[in-house]
Simulated assay, not measured.
Amino acid sequence: MSDRSTDFAAIPAAHRNLSDTARQRARIATMALFFIAGMVYGSWGVHVPTVRDRFQLSPALLSVALLAVAGGSIGAMAANASWIARVGTRRACLTGGLVMSVCVALILVVPFYWMLLVVLALFGAGMATLDVAMNAEASAVEKALRKPIMSSLHGMFSVGGMVGAAVGGALLAHGMAPAVHLGLAAALSALVLIAACP
């Protein structure tokens, strides 16, 4: 009896009175977030050479551009933990995910290199915010379901990355403009985020 009480206490308050159907919907929505995060990251990865060619970057300048993504991610992870705890995972996932989506659509649209660095830093920050928030939500959903699901969720991120890279490569091979591809990836990401976060 005490074990069951302890298990119940560990379930987040927002999930204690959910039906089994609602818990499964929460699991599917969280899986969708992991998939979309991976898909956007894979879609962006396809275009690293495109960015190099469009802005005529030397290896050093391309490295700085990639460093901007990492810098934005590290900065967001260091600064956003208390904000995510305050506003909740739903709002944080939606905010971080939409910033990520808007930025990925702008990567091949901005006209100047310095603008590219700003967009890439914000892209990294949005992705990191989504990453932290969706992992916090995944932990809560796992507790609500009373069974381990974290590995399957992270598997969805990997699947999303493979799908994003494969579809991106196929579309480019068939002549789609790179900026259009990233715009479509951004639109799909935003739609899934808006549908999943409630």
Rank of each mutant, 00 (worst) to 15 (best):
L18H: 08
D20R: 14
D20W: 11
D20L: 13
D20Y: 11
T21C: 08
A22F: 10
R25F: 12
I28H: 14
I28N: 11
T30H: 09
M31F: 15
L33T: 11
F34M: 03
F35Q: 10
I36A: 12
I36M: 14
A37D: 15
A37V: 09
G38K: 13
G38I: 13
M39Q: 09
S43R: 12
V46T: 12
V46N: 12
H47G: 01
H47K: 14
V48C: 02
P49A: 10
D53C: 07
R54P: 00
F55A: 10
Q56Y: 05
S58Q: 05
A60M: 11
A60Y: 09
L61N: 13
L62W: 04
L62P: 01
L62I: 02
S63W: 06
L67D: 04
L67F: 15
A68Q: 05
G71Y: 08
G72I: 08
S73Y: 07
A76V: 10
A78V: 13
A78N: 10
A79N: 04
N80F: 14
A81H: 12
S82T: 12
S82W: 12
W83Y: 11
R86H: 14
T89R: 03
R90E: 13
A92S: 14
C93D: 00
L94F: 11
T95Q: 09
G97V: 08
G97H: 04
L98S: 12
V99M: 08
M100C: 12
V102Q: 04
V102K: 07
C103G: 02
A105T: 02
I107M: 12
L108Q: 02
V109N: 01
V110C: 01
P111T: 07
P111M: 05
P111L: 06
M115S: 07
M115P: 00
M115G: 07
L116G: 00
L117V: 03
V119W: 03
L120N: 03
L120I: 02
A128C: 05
T129A: 06
T129F: 02
D131N: 08
V132T: 07
A133R: 02
A133N: 02
M134Y: 08
M134V: 03
N135C: 05
N135I: 03
N135R: 03
A136S: 14
E137S: 08
E137Q: 15
E137H: 15
S139C: 10
S139W: 03
S139V: 15
A140N: 13
V141R: 02
E142M: 06
A144V: 07
L145C: 06
R146M: 13
